[in-house]
Design a protein around this nucleic acid. Structure first.
Lengths: 322, 322
DNA sequence: CTGAAAGCGCTAACAA
DNA sequence: TTGTTAGCGCTTTCAG
């Protein structure tokens, strides 16, 4: 039984102009592909940085007509397993396994064998492709931002958190350091209050009024491990009548909004969180379009992709001729 | 043809211990329910507040065994339509329509007829249930936080953004104000730099050194429209040798981390963003379990749900007896 | 080249 | 009770 071509067309047009839309669920069942990516992270809402990663991932996923699902595990392995299982049940096409703090970690077992990219973390077993900020390059940039002010540098924030970033940055800083430099570690957490206390303490012990025998001179330059640490450092400097950009130099990592709010404006090496998110999604979707065999062949030597930092120069570095 | 019960059990056990998991896609197609909620917002990654809303929503959705999808429209109606259409195609069960800044707005046409709750915004036509912070109560709290220091108050941040919150808070402040109070509006944006300039300007014109005929006295208390404005205000005060908590009082809205980092600590009325997200999801899921007819009967008079603010008291208010 | 049918994985309704 | 079947909306395959 034939149907007249005109009639068929009329039906089609009617359906279309009536606003027919295909059912994505049926489509997914049939094609075995949901056009969906899941991003699993320990913490997402805590600070503006992970927000940037999410935004970047969202953006790129959307550009590729994929839906991105964001999930938060609070760092709890049980929650993590439950979430991964649920997403697996929902037949997500691929995973982005992200951490708030850059670190080396192990991929959840459930995820092995599924398309996965690690974001802001590196696979312990080097089995999974990953994207991380180039913290060593960030260290190099931070030192460079100090210009000639490198006689006596304090690194603020050598406390416990974020081992990986800390070590990489220190390596970058040391790489370009003159032999004569005095490099001091100021141990504190990566929070304003902790940094304030530590720097205040340092300046107190080196204040001119102190009559102790073992008096120390105060550092000329401060490299702060993030903008919040720099914030605390500013407060301590202020307390001691020292102005960044005039009496001392301050440089920091993060490139957050806060850096621009401080007075004087804080020169900061910005970690490209947004770009991290974008690249992770790109890698993931590229991966599963690539020949899987070829991918597997190289899977033993997956070197992390490093994303370059950028420098935002403001006026917190003192330019004194000597 | 019968199968021995023992065999059947053996099959079932095998399947289970082999890790059988039902396919959620097939289930969704069959049951016409995806167990999924979508949260559509104009901006999510910009500040820590919307992050809190997302976190709260994520949390409650997870507790109800629902998946929450987060989408960002950048405030562009075309992107918004495309995203809503996609989510509709994917047969999402319900929507949370959120805005970064509290305001009165219109629900996208595509969303009418679908289970929807508005978050941090109010429906122009009062057709859709919504959850917003109780900004009027926040204003009352802010004034109360000032204690007896209410002779001469400056409200910082009466510039253009966030009309709704501004008006509600002002109403709350005015409600409890002694007749004799001088209430001034300091027009500026809700950013540190803008606030700094405005307050600095004010203090300059009222500085003792100024010999102008029309000299003004400097305000004793400052109510800042958010913590970033308070940050800029602190900077300006500092520049003029004024210390919050001693010479003047400062109170603010938001209850962000920044408030705790300032020295002295900033007393701030916190907007319960996390709770907003939680309540929105609860309302949504309750709604579609409720009888739909009953819901429709009341749909003409959907009063917004108000979430109460809380006060975090620190030391930025001066306690002077008079 | 156009139209019918099978089947993705599941469950609600049905038949034995 | 137990097991079988129809069908959710779509596309790919196959027959006409």
């Amino acid at each position: 039984m034939r149907i007249a071509a005109a009639t068929a067309a009329r039906v089609r047009d009617a359906a279309e102009s009536l606003g027919y839309r295909p059912n994505a669920v049926a489509l997914a069942l049939r094609s075995n592909s949901t056009q969906t990516i899941a991003m699993i992270s320990d913490l997402i809402a805590t600070n503006e940085y992970s927000g940037q990663m999410v935004a970047g991932a969202l953006e790129t996923a959307h550009a590729q007509a994929k839906l991105l699902i964001v999930a938060e595990t609070h760092g709890d392995p049980d929650i993590e397993n439950a979430i991964v299982q649920d997403l697996l049940d929902r037949r997500v096409d691929g995973f982005i396994y992200a951490t708030e703090v850059t670190r080396i970690t192990k991929l959840p077992e459930l995820l092995t064998g599924h398309h996965t990219v690690m974001l802001n973390c590196i696979d312990e077993d080097n089995q999974t492709p990953s994207v991380v900020p180039d913290e060593r390059a960030a260290g190099v940039l931070a030192l460079a931002a100090l210009g000639t002010d490198t006689k006596d540098i304090a690194v603020v924030g050598t406390g416990h958190p974020n081992r990986y970033a800390l070590q990489q940055r220190l390596a970058g800083i040391r790489a370009g350091l003159p032999k004569s430099t005095l490099l001091r570690n100021i141990d504190c957490d990566w929070w304003p209050e902790s940094a304030f206390a530590a720097v205040d303490n340092l300046l107190r012990s080196s204040a001119p009024s102190t009559k102790r025998a073992h008096r120390v001179t105060s550092p000329r330059a401060f490299i702060c491990m993030n903008d919040q640490v720099a914030f605390g450092t500013y407060q301590a400097l202020h307390e001691h009548g020292l102005t960044p950009g005039r009496d001392v130099s301050v440089v920091s990592f993060d490139g957050s909004l806060l850096a621009g709010w401080l007075r004087p404006g804080l020169t900061s090496v910005s970690t490209p969180h947004r770009e991290l998110g974008q690249v992770a999604v790109s890698m993931l979707t590229n991966n599963w379009e690539t020949d899987l065999a070829a991918q597997h062949r190289h899977s033993q030597s997956a070197e992390p992709i490093l994303i370059s930092p950028a420098l935002t120069t403001r006026t917190s570095v003192s330019v004194h001729t000597e």
